[in-house]
Design a protein around this nucleic acid. Structure first.
Lengths: 233, 233
DNA sequence: GCAGCCGCCCTTACGTTGTAAGTCTTACGA
DNA sequence: TCGTAAGACTTACAACGTAAGGGCGGCTGC
């Protein structure tokens, strides 16, 4: 009989790189990226910290792997949605791809920050870019313009933007009005703008912005600009 | 006589929040952001780590302060360059401001990463945004469009972009050609593009991109797009 | 059947980090 | 002259990543 275990002991599925990376994503999903430590990761797997090092080189390798797994998930999603007909609208296809990638990333709020810190580019990310490039080439982009396009999109190509400026943070909603009045002298344009935005959209709390529609606005701005350049060429 | 020191002992300029923050920037400039530890920072100041805590709350506070100092430096630079005449070209003014901010950030290569991790927005950054908004409003932007514009620009408004994709990294230049050939099957569009880019610009090593011109390309793409929307309104 | 080996996991331990808690020192006002 | 308090230092600790080595179980060669 194969592998008779001690009675009462759990079978204990063995560790593997795959399991470690999936557990890492799970830990980060539930506790944020700063809660992802080697010890906690091991605990999550019912193992000891040092046991992980048989399957991953170090913590950097874990983060690299996590990015690769998420990028693979993105590829699976975008591969499923569209095989655009030859000569179809490149803009529509690219837009849909990017918004689908964004949906995946929205499920892992901590992921953008990790993507940004990686210096080794994941193969899955390269595959994603390659497909995006293919859509643009098929849509009539020169290699040169497609290259510019990737840089212009930056992280937006993968579905996220770095917000430097989160009006939600800082003071809680309670005394935000008082803060606004206090800052009106220092930042007249900012305060005036926020007041009007809030007035136009009463559902929103002060300074609140719809991330999704802002993302789409910026994305369309860039895609439209690229399209105009493409037509002129 | 005031403050007679022990003979042979240095006068030792006292610590202050200002000095701590400036030293932090200096340490990060020379050794990268990961070399910025409280102990090293103290050593740089000729003091002990715990002495810093009299002047800053904790390390997060140091990073917040560093961002504020750099944003202040940016404000000083951009305030100096231009007070555009009423009705002048908003695009030119905004572009010049942003490129000047970029020059400051290029002197602190580690700074973008720190900016991105801050959740408390620095007052100096707010001041920068307020001035940028003022230029746009004077150029005929509605509050709504100016708001979209800030989001669309994102970190570009401060002069940097997050590159997710650095062709320089990975393999060294020596065996990069071999890697390319190997990857050609997997990433045909990417490899084809890089080959052509490299061919057109023989000075560049394979996969090398001119960050500055790519930044300006993306910036102009967004500014032109915004201008077109403004004209239609 | 058994000896050796090796893949896999664990134990122990170390250096580095941020920082809590308490102590010494020095300048100054009463 | 003597508190007193600001400002620097000393000591100490928990949490982190991870180096080094120990042990165990199943496979392979004889």
């Amino acid at each position: 009989m194969a592998s008779q275990a001690v009675p009462g002991a759990e079978p204990r599925t063995p560790l593997s790189r795959e399991r470690v990376l999936r557990a890492a994503i799970s830990v980060a999903d539930s506790g944020g990226i700063e809660s992802l430590t080697m010890r906690r990761l091991a605990e999550h797997l019912g193992a000891e910290a040092m046991s992980l090092y048989y399957h991953v080189a170090n913590k950097e390798d874990v983060l690299d792997g996590v990015v690769d797994v998420i990028a693979t998930e993105i590829n699976e999603v975008v591969d499923r949605i569209d095989v655009p007909a030859e000569g179809a609208d490149w803009k529509k296809a690219v837009r849909q791809r990017i918004l689908s990638a964004r949906e995946v990333l929205l499920r892992h709020a901590w992921a953008p920050g990790v993507f940004e810190t990686r210096t080794n580019t994941s193969l899955a990310v390269l595959r994603y870019y390659d497909a995006l490039l293919g859509l643009m080439r098929a849509g009539g982009f020169s290699n040169d313009l497609a290259h510019h396009a990737l840089h212009a999109l930056g992280s937006r190509a993968l579905g996220f933007t770095q917000e430097l400026f989160d009006p939600n943070s800082g003071a809680g909603a309670t005394d935000q009005a008082a803060d606004l009045a206090e800052m009106a002298g220092q930042f007249p344009n900012l305060v005036g703008m926020l007041a009007e935005i809030a007035h136009d959209d009463p559902d929103s709390t002060l300074g609140w912005c719809d991330d999704q529609s802002e993302f789409e606005f910026g994305l369309d701005l860039i895609l439209d600009g690229l399209d105009r350049i493409r037509e002129r060429a």
